[in-house]
Design a protein around this nucleic acid. Structure first.
Length: 756
DNA sequence: ATAGGGTTAG
């Protein structure tokens, strides 16, 4: 390389320095400067190379940074520190730690300034393993007594869920300052340890340490995160009463809690404070206000805050979408989402996840799947929140392929161990009829919480697998996980489906005796089902009379269903009357009653019920089934004429029905409401959506492959018989999920053993 | 050059 004349080199040096100004330099300028440095042989100028390193690091150009580092003949502590500080600040923990270990292997000794950044990188990892090692290195270097190092270590232990290690370290620190106390208090708050947090706060007084705003805010945010809403608000008020002025941070972490409490007055008061303190231009505060009003069902105030914003903000838009959806206005949520998108607003992962959640929570499952696709087309990557928002939509309409795709995505992205992702996978597979895959997901989870246990039990219950449900229940207890009222709902409903009266009573009684849980209305509903299904209608009724609270529609509904199964007109009439009072607008109850009459041939009573429905403006909810064929979900309505393959379906159905008649089957026309000619009744039965869906599946899948159908109402007895026949005649495994149970048909037999 | 805090999605 030729040496340049000195004056020119000086000039170049100046130019390069300008290019490397950390405040103004762009990435392309950094690259130009890098090229110049290489050309002019200035690589040994540590001033230049360090600036270059820092620029590359701040632009997340790891390869370039490493290249520069390698080109330095003898990188020193300063070169490494520059990079490690930058990466730690930008949450690039892996890179920061890789550089740290490289640095150590070169024999360089870290100083007390470097440790906090390294520890911060360790805090971003899921376990404290690396953090403990760094702690040990700091100790042997004699730097563990530095207050910066200590507080970063406390923070690391807390982030890695090792609060006892954090406390152990804290107790050994002789001179505590506000920062280290604040780190520990925030840790306690985040874990819901209210007493410990409060205790430490008062101990600070003894140490003559005054809490500051950051400390208060850490507590507020922590309690809010622990869902201790009352405590969250209490801290905000305590802070205020002790003369500290809550800032935007305090307000935005307290408002979510205010929304959860039923104290709209406090919310309005805080809104007033925001206006008075001029916090109204703080984006987080505005989003939090919208969220609070949304949670408290104040659609008007919510929109008002939104429209009074002086600058558009994605966070506020997202809060508005969720707020609308919370108040039953999904269509409006979809509309505003579209508007934001069309106006070129930069939608983020929260925006997409919010709208997907709105859809899957409000019966717009197909829309949720479509939005998930659209989101990926737009280049937005799903995360560990998006997946649990999407999966219920897959489960609702048994879109197994979509669910599996989401599962694969989770495995690839390493988020499948997340308890939310895991429990939503368990639920999705169960609802798609894949109970073994559901169990597999459960078995493979490294950590489980109550929701996971409940999800797998609910799955087994839904599949009528009472023994498995009880097995898991026992396993849960042995693992030390305490059951909650949902766990008992799962076990009891499993027992009720199989008519296991002894087991049902055992679990029902053990709730209060052994677990200190009072039976809720849903547990009584399970017991009513259990008793009444097996024909003990009177016993079920007396159970209702003995309930310690007013029976609700679920309880009476359970009894009415059994009256239908056992064709009990007298009790059915009585129960239906109760239900008409409790939920006058639910057509299902009228249908059940008229079915009871119809099963006894009491056609004039059937007409009376139907006339009453008509006069109330009620219509039978249309039967609707879903089936996934070749990755596409088809929706079929009862008597559907719109489906393009309908002629083929009818043809196939007729073919099947003549085959059935040959083998001695007669359509069970009791399941038809109307008093019509037998011939017509048969036609009406033919139109039931579950049959249409099964036949659509037969026509479009290879022989022998299995079919999965989801129905929005209970499966009718005739369809049950027909699908049993189809399963053996066509040699298919068919599963049909109705509102409360899975029916697995195989070789002419159903898993429910005709008890449902 | 180094340490503690915020909104909107489950």
């Amino acid at each position: 390389m030729t040496r340049q004349p000195l004056n020119l080199l000086d000039h170049l040096h100046q130019t390069i320095l300008q290019f490397l100004n950390p405040f103004t330099a762009s990435l392309s300028q950094a690259r130009q400067a890098h090229a110049q440095i290489l050309k002019t042989g200035l690589s040994s100028d540590t001033n230049l190379t360090t600036k270059l390193l820092s620029l590359y690091a701040n632009n997340l150009c790891f390869d370039d940074a490493n290249f520069v580092l390698d080109s330095i003949s003898e990188p020193n502590l300063f070169s490494y520190s520059t990079l490690i500080h930058a990466f730690a600040k930008l949450n690039q923990f892996g890179h920061a730690l890789a550089l740290f270990s490289q640095m150590l292997s070169r024999g360089l000794v870290p100083d007390s300034f470097l440790f906090p950044s390294v520890v911060k990188a360790c805090a971003g990892l899921p376990t404290s393993k690396a953090g403990k090692q760094v702690h040990a290195i700091a100790s042997v270097s004699g730097l563990a007594s530095d207050s910066f190092v200590q507080s970063s270590l406390v923070h690391m232990y807390i982030k890695c869920d090792q609060i006892r290690d954090a406390r152990k370290l804290f107790d050994r620190v002789p001179h505590r300052n506000v920062i280290i106390c604040s780190a520990l208090i925030s840790g306690y708050s985040r874990r819901g340890c209210v007493d410990e947090a409060m205790q430490l706060l008062s101990e600070m007084r003894d140490m003559c340490l005054e809490p500051n705003v950051v400390l208060w805010n850490g507590m507020i945010a922590g309690f809010n995160q622990s869902k201790l809403y009352a405590d969250t608000v209490a801290v905000l008020q305590k802070m205020h009463s002790e003369g500290f002025r809550p800032d935007g941070s305090s307000i935005s972490s307290a408002l979510p809690a205010v929304g959860h409490l039923e104290d709209l007055g406090l919310g309005i008061q805080i809104h007033g404070y925001v206006v008075k303190q001029g916090l109204g231009s703080d984006k987080c505060v505005v989003s939090a206000l919208i969220d609070m009003y949304g949670k408290r069902a104040c659609s008007f105030e919510m929109s008002q805050v939104f429209h009074e914003m002086d600058q558009m903000d994605v966070g506020a838009c997202n809060a508005l979408v969720t707020g609308l959806s919370r108040n039953g206005l999904v269509d409006n949520a979809l509309e505003v989402f579209r508007q934001f998108k069309d106006r070129g607003m930069e939608l983020n992962i929260v925006s997409w996840t919010s709208i997907i959640a709105s859809c899957s929570q409000n019966g717009k499952d197909m829309e949720a799947l479509e939005l998930f696709r659209e989101m990926q087309v737009e280049g937005v990557e799903p995360n560990s929140v998006t997946i649990p928002c999407l999966l219920p939509a897959c489960g609702n309409i048994a879109a197994l392929m979509h669910g599996k795709a989401a599962h694969c995505f989770s495995l690839r992205r390493g988020i499948s161990n997340d308890v939310y992702v895991g429990s939503s996978l368990i639920d999705m597979y169960a609802k798609c009829g894949k109970i073994r895959l559901s169990r597999l997901c459960f078995d493979e989870m490294p950590t489980r919480n109550l929701v996971c246990w409940n999800a797998v039990m609910a799955g087994y219950a839904m599949h009528g697998k009472a023994n498995e449900t009880m097995d898991v229940f026992r396993l849960m207890q042995r693992s030390g996980q305490k059951p909650d009222f949902i766990s008992f709902t799962c076990v009891l409903s499993a027992c009720s489906q199989k008519g296991l009266a002894d087991e049902g009573w055992y679990y029902f009684n053990s709730m209060s005796k052994e677990h200190g849980l009072e039976a809720r209305v849903e547990h009584y509903a399970c017991m009513v089902t259990l008793l009444s299904r097996s024909g003990k209608l009177e016993e079920a009724y007396s159970m209702i009379k003995q309930m310690p609270f007013e029976p609700d529609a679920c309880v009476w509904g359970a009894l009415l269903s059994s009256c239908r199964v056992h064709s009990n007109v007298t009790l059915g009439k009585f129960v239906a009357k109760k239900l008409f009072n409790l939920e006058p607008k639910n057509p299902g109850n009228y249908i059940l009653l008229s079915n009871i009459y119809a099963s006894k041939g009491m056609w004039s009573e059937v007409d009376r019920v139907r006339d009453k429905m008509k006069s109330l403006g009620l219509r039978k909810n249309p039967g609707c089934s879903w089936i996934e064929v070749k990755n596409k979900v088809h929706m079929l309505l009862a008597g559907d004429k719109a489906h393009p393959q309908m002629n083929q379906i009818i043809e196939k159905l007729n073919e099947l029905s003549s085959e059935m008649k040959k083998s001695g089957y007669f359509p069970n026309t009791h399941f038809v409401l109307q008093d019509v000619e037998e011939q017509d009744k048969e036609q009406i039965l033919c139109g039931h959506s579950e049959k249409l869906a099964v036949v659509l599946g037969l026509l479009n899948t290879p022989p022998g492959s299995s079919l999965r159908v989801i129905k929005n109402l209970r499966i009718c007895g005739d369809c049950h018989a027909v699908i049993k026949f189809i399963s053996s005649f066509e040699g298919r495994e068919i599963s049909v999920r109705d509102t409360n149970l899975f029916h697995h048909f195989k070789d002419g037999v159903c898993s429910c053993e005709d008890y449902w």
